[in-house]
Write a protein that binds this DNA or RNA. Sequence first.
DNA 1: AACCGGGGCGAAAATATCTTTCATGAGTGA
DNA 2: TCACTCATGAAAGATATTTTCGCCCCGGTT
Lengths: 326, 326
Amino acid sequence: MKETFSRAAGGRTASGDHTASVGRRATGGGSAPPAPAALAAKVRTLAPSMTRSMQRVAEAVAGDPAGCAALTVTGLAELTGTSEATVVRTARLLGYPGYRDLRLALAGLAAQQQSGRAPAITTDIAVDDPIADVVAKLAYDEQQTLADTAAGLDTVQLGAAVAALAAARRTDVYGIGASGLVAQDLTQKLLRIGLIAHAHSDPHLAVTNAVQLRSGDVALAITHSGSTGDVIEPLRAAFERGATTIAVTGRPDGPVTQYADHVLTTSTSRESELRPAAMSSRTSQLLVVDCLFVGVAQRTYDAAAPALAASYEALAHRHGAHRGRP
Amino acid sequence: MKETFSRAAGGRTASGDHTASVGRRATGGGSAPPAPAALAAKVRTLAPSMTRSMQRVAEAVAGDPAGCAALTVTGLAELTGTSEATVVRTARLLGYPGYRDLRLALAGLAAQQQSGRAPAITTDIAVDDPIADVVAKLAYDEQQTLADTAAGLDTVQLGAAVAALAAARRTDVYGIGASGLVAQDLTQKLLRIGLIAHAHSDPHLAVTNAVQLRSGDVALAITHSGSTGDVIEPLRAAFERGATTIAVTGRPDGPVTQYADHVLTTSTSRESELRPAAMSSRTSQLLVVDCLFVGVAQRTYDAAAPALAASYEALAHRHGAHRGRP
DNA sequence: AACCGGGGCGAAAATATCTTTCATGAGTGA
DNA sequence: TCACTCATGAAAGATATTTTCGCCCCGGTT
């Protein structure tokens, strides 16, 4: 009973007087069920928003699931040089009701790792790695990113976002830099199934357009950091105009979520000097966007199928006739 | 402290105080290590020697590991119509120090079973797939695409392409539609490490620019079909002007390769109605492009590293300062 | 049929473990 | 510098687990 209550309290009271009063984004914080194998991903996603002590705990947990599963709260607290309270807080942050459940998940994770593949060791890409290693490492990392993202995606939020998109009279997508390309990708796809969508990279134009939106429209912001002002502003404008707003971000607690009815979390993986964060965040974002697209296509199948076929046909003309067409 | 002590005590009779003083619990009290996944077997083996109540508990545990893992001693006792003591006795009989550890093992078992069911998603995405399946299938497919691409990449060609890019005075990248986004992605990255690169989506402008190229410059065309005229034309122009030309295509025998000094092959995976080819080709292309980028970054490390750092710094300013920054 | 061990068994005490509360101090912005 | 916020851990407060203890069922014996 208090269970539920305490959970809600954990979900950051902070900023949102506006948000709070509006009372939207109800689904925001705690809807996610405890993760099974998505734990490592979740740790990475949430790590930035953690305090130092909690990070230590999270690190220990992610680094040695099996070992930590064998420890009691007190044990883990001692190991990480923190207190029981901190351990419990971390468990909560990771989406579990308490340490006990985190421990259970840890045991599960350990078992999976054990039975699964042993060689999960990824070294960073080094300056003198031969090109073949670069290919292998990059491919592996991106695969990992995909797995993490898929595991960490909240299907409820995703479903809600899909529903909103499918029903939208019009959709605006905001993204800057690398995220801008993802925004365009989504837009291209939506257009192909006959929906009305626009991607905006220019902040001013984005806001200008956003204020045109109203209930029944959808605004979708893509930002890895979750705090890209140029993207938040248009989303906010749309939010205040009553449009349904969606955020695709790697920081589920970032400012952007204040104005988002639905938050889709992308995974954050360790970056290195030669592998900028942009790379994995892009992969992650694209997967999310693809899921959105396919979801929408399913929902609007009757309209989408012919549209897809038509655009396929149209394109075929642009390419020389080559074999392989069934 | 009591932790260790009590646990050792739990280890029962046998070795007693010696074990306790050592404080290891790895091997536990008895000789048998707790079972990992051999639990079901153990239950069957030991069932005959169990009392009626214990059998009920064992049965429940073997029948629904996941479900039981979610229960407390009391819960499981109630479920099986027995008492806590019996549950603990059963756990002991199965080789665990207590119920807590049995529960942990149960969680592990459940996780294993769950993950074992993974490769059931080889099917195409159907119109009525639940959203969770869509996510799983898409992630799986893209992972597959990455693996295929990595496996099929010719590292010699890749190395040559990297060398050309790293040495290029200027690089033009051509791509249309979805490939255009990939082209932009590459361009963005190259710019970030201080190289001069442009992406062209407009065929006319592309050709106009291509004729400016000459030996020492690089032109890179991205086209899945390998026969997109709008992309081939500028590549051809560049080729004829003596620039080094690279093609990233899914058709290593397509027209585009005629004018390419180096051909990088992207993988083509099966597409379906709801999963257009563009999706996997994009994933594939991006991996190739990432490899190119990292390769170039390696080769130009002295210049690239500071440039990357600088652009990182510059971006940090655009985002609000949030905590978690070490 | 009555009596007598021998255990299986569960209620409840005892203990360990987990959770919550609360006071403190470190860091931060004005 | 001061007020303020918030992270943090100590310890109190709940729960969960383990242990204790003896009932009572079951078979065998006289």
